[in-house]
Design a binder for these strands. Structure first.
Length: 114
DNA sequence: GATATGACGTCAT
DNA sequence: CATGACGCCATAT
């Protein structure tokens, strides 16, 4: 290893984080990335999910609660979330209600009123 | 080391 | 609000 600092791969860290998303909650790719201490590395979350399994991958959505998967996979994700009690606003997850922030402050959104 | 890939994020128009 | 362009970062080849 050229960088002994990285005792664990980013994958493993991301996977561990995704695995901590509580049932009935969701998190954005960027949110997971931040929780993994890799701000801006939302794409690595995607990468990690690709090579992972057995994780609540369906709890990871776009920053606005939008399901980014296309085709039947996206449909399945939505069904799984609804089965967990996640509410939707149109075609998006109600982030105000279900976004998991890992203890961090959720991004203040306009219109966000308790 | 360079190039390609990936279920993104954010800003500008 | 929809679309396009660019940025972002780690992994695969």
């Amino acid at each position: 290893m050229q960088s002994p600092r990285r005792r664990t791969t980013v994958h493993q860290r991301i996977l561990a984080i995704v695995g901590r998303i509580p049932r009935g909650k969701v998190c954005s790719y960027g949110g997971v990335a931040r929780a993994a201490r890799l701000p801006g590395a939302a794409r690595q979350v995607v990468w990690a999910l690709h090579s992972s399994r057995g994780l609540p991958w369906h709890r990871v959505v776009g920053a606005k609660g939008e399901i980014k998967l296309k085709g039947e996979s996206g449909l399945e994700q939505r069904l799984r979330l609804e089965a967990e009690g996640v509410s939707f606003l149109g075609s998006r997850v109600n982030m105000e209600r279900h976004e998991h922030t890992f203890g961090r402050r959720p991004a203040a959104r306009k219109g966000a009123r308790r």
